[in-house]
Design a protein around this nucleic acid. Structure first.
Length: 377
RNA sequence: CGGAGUGUUCUCCAGCGGCAACGAGAGCUGACUGUAAAUCAGCCGUCAUUCGACUUCGGAGGUUCGAGUCCUCCCACUCCGA
């Protein structure tokens, strides 16, 4: 069983501090989940991920792992935990986001989605049933339903049609999920995903349908995909009004540090995003006082620590000038340092949020933080 | 001393009568939200927000409506031969 316990609910807003229990251990919420698409958080060793960054749960991706290394390898390894050596909880995305991000090389049909592999162009068909089977084989503690993630700019007509499809697929996911057993002896949960683009009534209807299912956790998808940020916040509010309060809520693919705090305030418990790792590899560092572009010339002679207040060993071991140099010289270490710093920062941020919820002063702290976080250093 | 060749905007390199001058690199800046991303985009002689104006291709002359491109001389470097 996956269980969720709320330690403390904020009195002024919908934020809550809780614990998710899985067979691979507990997760303190609110939590940020580093993305490890191919079973690896890019550029980060497991000991850094666990001991320094203190990641409590990471993601893998169904579509990518299915293409490479392939299910036979993962099955032979005994599941993804055994394969990559991460002994804590994991979550797999279903490939629903690839329906969005690979829009040029896929075709959506009622039965499922036909993908052209981005690696070799070969054809692959993803059905809700097939995705459940793949996620069973990968063996993550939390499996995501297969959905369509439409662009944030979709019109009502398309959004409605897309939602109907996602809901049909959800029924099929649940059926298959219930017909199958975990392959490796520990429990797997299935999280359904609320879609509905930027339309309140669609989101409401979707959330109501999902609330009735009594899933072990629920997700909100289809946000931060091109719609304005305030619309995203509005949709989170609409949906969280309806989703069960006693189950974890996962906002998929979001986001910036400010997004996390705004989401937490609105009752989100789980986040994932490629931003800390991808932007880190592109030389962007997140700090509690704003973002820095480490490729900028202004760091050339700045020998102060990367982040005086950072929690990672990289923050005090390396200087800004040194990281700037590593980026300019295209040293691999630059990508690693930036990824570690950013992930440690994200985990620190949600940890702080949790502490402030428990202390009862979340809203004031959050307002100050959001202002600081938006700066550019 | 004789012969052959080369000198282009930070670097390398293209250019063979219409050129502010191809391409690459470097440099500067920006973007990135369930990872087709160690990626992508813009700028990169000076001035102007735009039209555009101005100054450039080792140096000095010349031919031409027009010269980085053709001619003459000079300078520098490279290679070959004594």
């Amino acid at each position: 069983m996956l269980t969720f316990h709320i330690d403390k609910a904020d009195e002024k807003c919908n934020a809550r501090a809780g614990v998710i229990n899985t067979d691979h251990g507990s997760i303190l919420t609110p939590i940020f989940m580093p993305v490890g698409t191919l079973g690896s958080v890019k550029g980060v060793h497991m000991h850094e991920l666990c001991d320094d960054i203190k990641a409590q749960i990471i993601l893998g991706n169904t579509y990518h792992l299915y293409l490479r290394p392939g299910l036979d390898v993962i099955h032979a390894a005994g599941g993804l935990h055994k394969f990559n050596g991460f002994n804590r909880p994991m979550l797999t995305d279903s490939g629903g986001f690839q329906v969005f991000s690979l829009s040029g090389i896929r075709k959506i049909k009622p039965e499922g989605v036909e993908f052209r592999s981005h690696i070799d162009g070969s054809r692959h068909f993803f059905s809700p049933e097939g995705v459940m089977d793949i996620e069973r084989t990968i063996g993550a503690d939390i499996m995501m339903a297969f959905d369509e993630c439409p662009p944030g700019t979709s019109d009502f007509q398309y959004a409605k049609k897309s939602l109907a499809l996602t809901e049909q697929w959800l029924d099929r996911c649940i059926r298959r999920f219930n017909e199958t057993e975990p392959l490796y002896g520990y429990h797997q949960a299935l999280f359904p995903i609320v879609q509905g683009c930027t339309f309140r009534d669609l989101r409401q209807k979707a959330a109501e349908n999902i609330a009735r299912l009594g899933a072990e956790g629920n997700a909100i998808g289809g946000l931060a995909v091109g719609e304005p940020t305030d619309v995203m916040y509005e949709m989170i509010e609409v949906v969280n009004e309806i989703l069960p309060k006693d189950k974890p809520r996962y906002l998929m693919g979001v986001g910036t540090p400010q997004n996390l705090l705004e989401g937490i305030e609105r009752g989100i418990d789980m986040f994932d995003c490629v931003m800390p790792t991808r932007n880190g590899r592109n030389a962007m560092l997140f700090t509690r006082h704003g973002t820095m572009n480490m490729k900028n010339k202004k760091w050339e002679m700045d020998f102060s620590p990367l982040d005086e207040e950072g929690t990672s060993y990289v923050d005090t071991t390396y200087s800004k000038a040194y990281l700037h140099h590593l980026f300019k010289a295209q040293e691999l270490l630059a990508l690693q340092i930036a990824s570690i710093h950013n992930l440690a920062f994200y985990l620190w941020l949600v940890g702080e949020a949790r502490q402030h919820i428990i202390a009862g002063d979340f809203t004031g702290w959050k307002a100050k933080m959001v202002e600081e976080l938006g700066r550019r250093i």
